[in-house]
């Protein structure tokens, strides 16, 4: 990191970069959320199931995010852990209309939290209770109860309901993550 980079950041010309990992069950809307967060001209029109992962970039007011958008399909979930190490924040997407698989999501979350690379770190976790527009969808509170989020004591976490297709609720989450990371730096 050269002197000019530091200077540029100090002057607010260049934003600080953060690595974020985005996980969740398959068909929960991870890629759609990330796609929505990207600038208008970089968005894709059709979203297909991710195989493996993709790297995406977007920016908030003060930070530049590099997101590892992981595949949620069962056979690839064990590959998430390869990317925990250098993540500075985790976005966990939950399909709030899928009550049946909520337990599976809970199970995956527990595994994530017990991972060596996560366990020791005070890393902010943002939950999106996605698909809030669906008729049978649960509220954010209900989801946090079912996921047992209140048991997470050693890490800051936040849950917000979202609709990835319209983008509703997304900025709120990003703002929270930005605040958390900035406060952590201080």
């Amino acid at each position: 990191m050269g002197f000019f980079d530091t200077l540029a950041r100090w002057l607010g010309m260049k934003k600080k970069e953060v690595n974020v990992i985005c996980v969740g069950l398959d068909n929960s809307g991870k890629t759609t959320i990330i796609n929505q967060l990207k600038p208008q001209n970089a968005q894709q029109s059709d979203i297909v199931p991710t195989i493996g992962f993709t790297v995406e970039k977007f920016a908030s007011a003060s930070l530049s995010f590099t997101v590892f958008d992981m595949s949620g399909q069962g056979r690839y979930r064990n590959l998430w852990e390869h990317y925990y190490k250098d993540a500075q924040a985790i976005i966990f997407v939950i399909d709030s209309s899928d009550k049946l698989r909520m337990v599976v999501a809970k199970d995956e979350l527990e595994q994530l939290l017990n991972n060596q690379d996560i366990l020791s770190k005070r890393i902010p976790i943002l939950f999106y209770a996605n698909k809030m527009d669906m008729k049978e969808s649960l509220s954010a509170v209900k989801v946090s109860q079912m996921m047992g989020l209140e048991t997470i004591k050693d890490k800051p976490w936040h849950i917000c309901a979202s609709n990835a297709i319209t983008g509703e609720g997304l900025p709120e989450g990003v703002e929270w993550v930005t605040d958390q990371i900035r406060s952590m730096k201080k």
Partner: peptide, 12 residues
């Protein structure tokens, strides 16, 4: 092993 992890990145 698991080289298919890069599939989506390459497709992109």
């Amino acid at each position: 092993e698991d080289v298919i992890i890069v599939t989506s990145s390459l497709t992109k």
